[in-house]
Design a binder for these strands. Sequence first.
RNA 1: GCCCCGAUAGCUCAACUGGAUAGAGCAACGGUCUUCUAAACCGUAGGUUACAGGUUCGAGUCCUGUUCGGGGUACCA
Length: 542
Amino acid sequence: MLPYIHSLISEVLRKRSIEIPDFTVEHPKNPDFGDISTNVAMKLAGILKKNPLKIAEEIREELLTLHEFLIQEIECVRPGFINFYISDHYYQSLVEKLIEEDKNFMKPEREGKKVQIEFVSANPTGPLTIGHGRQAVLGDTIARILEWYGNDVTREYYFNNAGRQMQRLGESVYARCKQLLGKDYPIPEGGYEGEYIRDIASDYLKEREGILPENPLDRDLIDFASDRIFKMIRETLDRLGVHHDIFTNEKDLYTSGKIDEVLALLREKGYLYDKEGAVWFRATCFGAEKDRVFVKSSGEPTYRLPDIAYHREKLLRGFDLIIDIFGADHHATYPDVKAGLEAMGYDTSNIVVLLHQFVTLTRNGEKVKMSTRKANFVTLDELMDLAGPDVVRYFYIMRTMDAHLNFDIELAQKESDENPVFYLQYAHARMNNILKHSVDKGIDSYLDGDIQLLNEPETLDVLKVVSEFGEVMELCRRTLEPMHLTSYLQKLATAFHKFYATHRVVTEDLLLSRARLKMVHAVKTLMAEGLGILGVSAPDHM
RNA sequence: GCCCCGAUAGCUCAACUGGAUAGAGCAACGGUCUUCUAAACCGUAGGUUACAGGUUCGAGUCCUGUUCGGGGUACCA
């Protein structure tokens, strides 16, 4: 509806040969200002050097000649706003549209882009934490939104199974094995101290019949440990409803020679130089303050190099859009990756980096400091034990990724009432129950209900919220912020609960009952669709 | 020092590209179930949008500076 009004106004201006300014068409916060409002006259006031209210009146006159039946009334107000009142008929018609289009309600033409989205990407050194959870849900929900638009989305997990972290993991398991064998053997400095390490050590000894390799950095030991941890990670993600299509590991980039290719290309373009035994990249050519080391004097690459090689692979794989989701701590690294790619002559404009702020955990009103190494964290699994996957998913995307997320353990543990998720699910269950009740009452069909009977304010308010669905989805896609959908569904549920409280659906009045049942059916479809995009279940009973 | 995020009701947070009287939930207080689920609804109360300037018809939103909090700024990942 908003783009439609926008185009109507543009048409009027074009007809009058007035240059079209950058103006907004929106739903005003205050219902006294109509269903839709535009500031076009005020934008034109400066250009035309005329009174904005006068301009508004002129545009209104012109619009009235169009005899647009969807618009009931147009009014011009104080500084120069033009407010539109949309006819009830339009809102009522949405009920039929929703039933007819079902899951394609307000969905535009298939976009058909190839999208790759990388997220979570935690190295297999321990269970996923609450911090990883935010990224998992954020990435998956963004993927669902893009899929809704008919894009082909690849969910990808990139991990490092070759570096120093893996060595520390091996050493830690090794130490635990030694201890299990009755030896006094300390966990190395910077090693992993979690209980899961002990379990892995115990299983390792069992499966290898008590034989421990002599070298703590033994490949078999490390692989055993990382495989075990990866299995845990995948089970956790599975439980959360997050499924990656591809797992890419850093080790393969070395064995396949991709790292060397990048070095050769950069060398060829003249962006590398040797200094103090290390290989340096001229990051300053791309706006960085300092040049960066790509290969240490020890001969090992820094993390930037495989990151660049990996992203080069992504570009070569031919995606229309590449999305990376990182925690705020990565904010300094992605400019280097982009610089490296540009140095090789690649266009990085289709790479979008989304940074989310951290998750802080509070327990008894105090912040809990988390560290995987020290194992004083709450895992994502434990969180799901407390609150269930639906609540966890919802909580993670309730907020913009730009803001810190405060996860209150007490609140998560609390039974339902304070959980906004239940509010939505309850609305859905209620709608389902009404439909079920109508069957019990012997109303066998309502799809031929007369939508013109849906004319009370509370009923139309529900449909007004329904009318905004397309705009909200568009907003989610544009900003890649699923949060807008959560607040929309809250709004939808509120409108419905209010309708429910004022109007009884199934009554003696059969015609009215049918009309209302039809609306309930339609809104239930939309609520289920919205929850589905969020990856939250829509229960029929609660 | 420099870079990135944030600061809005007692608490957790909204406010779509600058729009009209800054909104929800929780907590507090008061109402509403013989009728489709009260996990709901209605009402009361709660604000100098961290601070100071600036830009304009109009600023929570944009610009500059300040304060506080988080994260970066490695031959760690």
